[in-house]
Amino acid sequence: MVRLFGPLVGLFFAVALLWSFGVGAIQAIREPEPATAVQVYHLAPHEPEPGFSFNGAFGKFDRAQLQRGFQVYKEVCSNCHSLHFVAFRDLAALGYSEAEVKAIAKDWSNKAKVVDPKTGDETQRDNVPADHFPKVYYAGTGNPPDLSLVTKARHEGPEYVYSLLTGYQDQPAELLKRFPDSKTPDGLYYNPYFANLNIAMPAPLADDQVTYGDGTKATKQQMAADVAAFLTWTAEPKMEKRKQTGWAVLGFLLAATVLAYLAKRNIWARVH
């Protein structure tokens, strides 16, 4: 039975597939899919010049850079973007003392929202270290995403954030000539690193937009790299511990596996 019906079923699927193939191939030849502006002009993200300190199997965060990046988030990004999965207490990992964390939380301009249990009125209070960064509500065009996980939510996340922030430019004239329909709509901004080339966020960074406490010159590239590093930390705060644990585990496993191999050879020596 199986030997009779099996080949028939197989041929049925094969013919159906080849039919689909034929139809698709003829269509592809007759009307080849036209190239799109995205296919031609979208760019892959790249690292900042000296590279990120946290990349690679031994990579570590640069605490000073994370603090600078936090400053950029605080002074620029936090106007529109939430950071909801991060708590103020987490900032201790950037090298802030308990008192500094407490002050950052208390002075954070976006206050924690609470409902008075007696009146039901919505009121607000100062943030405390145990609080998460309060959600930011944005009324303008576009939906600014929460940035807590953004570097894990994009391919090559840290590079993407850096490239995007430094990649704003005028739409190339050639692009308009070749794809007249792809002109950047009003209210959007051309950025070759953005998935569809046109982003709702205006270029957020300009040279010297913030003043760094440690004297680092606040070029656009510097701020973009710093905030990309900070957002890598927010997405994966346990990265250093992960790599550290990884090396210890691999070292142990390597030794154990060598021993297991020797033991296996020992035991099998008896029958070979």
């Binding site: 142990f252 496993l253 030794a255 154990a256 021993l259 297991a260 020797l262 033991a263 020992n266 035991i267």
Partner: peptide, 16 residues
Amino acid sequence: RRDFINIAAVSFAGVG
């Protein structure tokens, strides 16, 4: 010596 290796391998598995 060979016994030692077997015992060491099993001990490593235990520690792991």
